[in-house]
Amino acid sequence: MGDFADTRVSLAGQGTLVGVALTAGSTACIAGVAGLQITVRIVAGLTVTVGSPLLILRKGSTYWAIATFGAAPAVPPSPPLPSDTPPSSGDPAPAPKPVTTTGTLTCPPIATSTWRDGHWRTDIGSSTSADTYQGRYSGSGFGRMSGFAFYGSKPRSIAGATVTKATVKLRRLTSGDFGKRSPTLRLVSQSTRPGGFPTLNESTTGPALGVRGQVSPSEATFQLPTAWGQAMVDGTRGGLAISISSDDPYIRLAGRGSWSAAWTLTLYWRRSS
């Protein structure tokens, strides 16, 4: 390769030049400048590799590579625009919080009946809407009575829910003495009226009630044990009763035929999902 003197194009008068090394070297190399190839000497301490951009200075007829320089710095990318999605921490997303639903279920009885002397009484009205009696009237030749209310399948319509409160509406009617008396409430297995005597289970003392029109109060919305309401929802129990193992106190509570709200069961519940 000839030097600049061998070329037909003059670079004289162009001052400091910029070229690209076509060969590597530590004392001299071939460089491309303005479309020409020239021999360039390399100043001491400078190492040139192929492709290095060179700063070239002419002195007389000799060209000197006096420095190399890097390519223009890359422009850093613009930061991403903010988004609505938070950056991932690498941890799994927490489980969603459970949603709690609450409600109230009102359950009128499907039947109110009184049992005496081995059968359901029909002399006091319909055997499915009769008043409910407890005990035996003083001096009566008939047997002891027990009154019942059955709730069918409605309590089980909220199966799986947790009962937080359960109440029942009771009204005392004329029969026996007028003083305040408390019935003994029982939880019954059956949800519909059986042919025979129902199965009695848990018991609790009901509200002290006077006779309607004579001694107040004669009616009450009585709070039952919460477990009783839960048993109704779970289907292990299906009805309520007033029943004692003795004759007193003799009490008559309204059935469906005497009072539309009689024995209405209300269940307060919650459910998490």
Rank of each mutant, 00 (worst) to 15 (best):
T114Y: 03
T7W: 09
S83F: 00
P80Q: 02
F69P: 06
W269M: 01
Y151D: 05
P53F: 10
L267W: 00
G118C: 12
T204A: 13
W259D: 15
I124Y: 14
N201F: 12
G176E: 01
Q223L: 01
D177R: 03
Y63F: 15
L265D: 01
A261V: 07
P98W: 12
F178V: 11
A149Y: 06
G90F: 00
S10K: 06
T164P: 04
G32L: 13
V9N: 05
R136D: 00
T199D: 08
A44N: 09
K169R: 14
G143H: 05
S10N: 08
V43T: 13
T204G: 07
A74P: 02
A262L: 03
F69M: 05
T23K: 04
R58M: 10
G103S: 01
A161Y: 00
G70P: 02
A149T: 08
A159S: 14
A261C: 07
S78K: 14
L209D: 06
L240Y: 06
T167P: 05
G195I: 01
R271L: 15
T204F: 09
W269K: 00
L105C: 04
P217R: 08
S191H: 11
T236S: 14
R156G: 07
M1K: 11
Q14A: 04
S113V: 08
G19M: 03
K154I: 15
V48A: 07
Q223N: 14
A161P: 00
P53T: 08
L187G: 08
C29T: 13
L253P: 02
D234N: 15
S10F: 05
D84I: 08
I110R: 01
E202Q: 15
S243W: 12
P94H: 07
R212H: 12
S127N: 11
G210Q: 03
D123R: 09
T16Y: 04
G103T: 00
R121S: 09
S191L: 11
G70C: 00
P194F: 01
P98D: 12
T106S: 10
S191R: 12
F148M: 08
P225F: 05
W64P: 13
Y268C: 02
D131K: 00
Q190A: 12
G210C: 05
G35T: 03
T221A: 14
L55H: 06
Y63I: 10
Q37H: 07
V43M: 04
P76D: 07
G143M: 03
V18G: 04
T49H: 13
T104C: 05
I38W: 02
T184R: 13
L170V: 10
A159F: 09
T27K: 07
D234H: 13
L200V: 10
S272M: 14
F222D: 00
S127D: 13
Y137M: 10
D248P: 01
I242K: 05
P94C: 04
D177N: 12
P207W: 06
G195L: 02
A44G: 12
G141L: 07
R186C: 14
G19K: 00
S153D: 15
P109D: 06
P108V: 02
G45C: 10
S273V: 14
A261D: 15
A28C: 06
R256K: 15
D6K: 11
F197L: 03
T205D: 06
P183E: 04
S78A: 15
G160I: 01
T192W: 04
A261E: 14
R256T: 14
A231S: 15
